[in-house]
Design a protein around this nucleic acid. Structure first.
Lengths: 159, 159
DNA sequence: TGTCAAGTGTAGCAACGGCTACATTCATTG
DNA sequence: CAATGAATGTAGCCGTTGCTACACTTGACA
């Protein structure tokens, strides 16, 4: 028992591994990203709906995300608390300036990621699915690298 | 008011948009991916710890993720329910065969994504952060495209 | 104008992943 | 062998995102 590992602390556990902190940092980053993912998706969707139909109704938002309307309602309420949308009882939902600029950033980012995956040779279907997941985890630097690749590829190579 | 949009249903809302289902499908995919993300991260971490110290203690797992030990405990319990790990009171945590193979797949996938981002020119720091987030949303096809790109780039180009 | 269905609101439940506070076990060490 | 502190277990709280069931508004149309 106890075997292979060298120990220091009285009851086992690692000798205050230096790697731990670096890892924890990355995962903390991920957790906070998760909190904003939903907001980004909803804001972008609301912008799309307003674009398409002139307004964003709760039922449409829920339908597009494939969730029940109370679920969508709760999220809209949160977005309102955060100052991204405005919502009055039985009325459609609107974006604030803050919400609108977030939506525009997300839309652009989404398009870059999607175009990038397609340029890499991924099928349209998988590119669309993966882009939805990947876009929220792309740093500014990575996004720029994606954009540069798309430009490079479409500019020269792949006939 | 009501303005720009053409309406059909009695109370507004979109005319059963055909786009809705396609979108909902992608988001459903994302939600299910989120459910497995944590499991993947933990299983991979446990494998790393066993590799490094011969065993995986709860306190080390919690430390590496930067969460409290009860949080890690709950997740370990869930992994055990799902048959990915074994855990006995006051003992260290082990992977089942299922857990081990999942960990190996995740580790390989992580390495491909990380190498890919670096090959694209992303800095080490951002590549590591982004890889943690991106890896869970990469389909088999996209992963292969990433791997192919890494091979291609390291094989010929960038001296 | 009254009816009625669609849309919206609200209540309450579950699972997940955070946390703190406190109880328990275990292994080292005196 | 007993004590002590680290590791683990447990209880209970919160917020988020799911859900169903039921109540209420609204707007279109007979």
């Amino acid at each position: 028992m106890m075997s292979t590992a060298q120990r220091k602390s009285p009851r086992g556990s690692a000798p205050t591994l230096p790697t731990a902190e670096r890892h924890a940092e990355a995962f903390e980053h991920i957790r906070s990203a998760h909190q904003t993912e939903t907001a980004e998706d909803y804001v972008e969707m609301i912008a799309d709906l307003i674009d398409a139909h002139g307004e964003a109704r709760l039922v449409d938002i829920a339908g597009r995300f494939g969730v029940s309307h109370p679920t969508a309602k709760k999220i809209i309420d949160r977005l309102q608390r955060e100052g991204l949308v405005t919502s009055r009882p039985y009325r459609s939902i609107f974006l604030t300036d803050k919400g609108r600029s977030l939506a525009e950033y997300c839309k652009r980012r989404h398009q870059v990621v999607l175009a990038f995956l397609k340029a890499l040779g991924v099928s349209d279907r998988n590119a669309e699915i993966d882009a939805e997941g990947i876009e929220h985890h792309v740093s500014k630097e990575t996004l720029e690298a994606f954009a540069a690749f798309v430009t490079r590829e479409s500019g020269s190579g792949q006939s």
